[in-house]
């Protein structure tokens, strides 16, 4: 379970929201909150929403600061480490049982998560080159085989079936043109 006391990450995100709110207020003033005749102008909503966010985020930060942290949970540190890439300090901590049904501990799962995020970004970046379906197929095969260590054959079969189903629904039934990428252009 992740608790609200995931403090460092929580502080960072809420502080970022406060900054975003402040930025929005400044941007809104530049856009103009009210126009010359006193009507609502383009900056009104950003001003109100950004201002509200700034104030609420500050209140939340005060709340967080008031609650003195107890022992830091393993989770918090790991999350912190994941976000800003600090060196691993888990071994010095008291070990909490975090082994899931596949016998993976938190570190292994964090690595999986990092792999998936990188794979996702790469996959989208590859769409203009390989086309949509091909990139997605690679993503799925990678996730099932390399990240989840599933059976290779079964993974490939499921990937193929999923791609075929998506192709049927989107490209054939709904005739949505799926991008073929540069590769698709070369092949046609």
């Amino acid at each position: 379970m992740i608790s609200v006391t995931a403090r460092p990450a929580n502080l960072t995100v809420v502080a970022a929201l406060a900054l975003l709110g402040a930025g929005a207020v400044l941007g809104a003033i530049e856009l103009g909150v009210l126009d010359s005749s006193g009507h609502i102008a383009a900056g009104f909503m950003p001003f109100v929403a950004g201002g509200a966010m700034l104030v609420l985020a500050l209140i939340d930060l005060v709340h967080q600061a008031r609650h003195v942290p107890g022992a830091r949970a393993v989770d918090d540190l790991l999350f912190e480490q994941l976000i800003d890439g600090r060196p691993d300090t888990t071994d010095q901590l008291q070990v909490v049982s975090d082994i899931d049904i596949f016998g993976r501990d938190q570190r292994a799962r964090n690595r999986q998560l990092a792999k998936i995020i990188v794979a996702l970004v790469l996959c989208v970046a590859l769409i203009p080159l390989l086309g949509l379906l091909a990139s997605l197929g690679l993503l799925m095969a990678f996730a099932a085989i390399a990240v989840e260590h599933r059976s290779v054959v079964l993974s490939l079969v499921i990937t193929a079936v999923t791609l075929a189903a998506l192709y049927l629904i989107f490209a054939v039934l709904l005739s949505i043109p799926l991008p073929g990428g540069i590769l698709g252009g070369l092949l046609s």
Binding site: M140, E148, I158, L166, F170
Partner: peptide, 14 residues
């Protein structure tokens, strides 16, 4: 879930 979530990813993206 090891098969389910890649399917969710693909369906969401497409």
């Amino acid at each position: 879930y090891g098969y389910l979530y890649p399917i969710i990813l693909l369906t969401s993206i497409i």
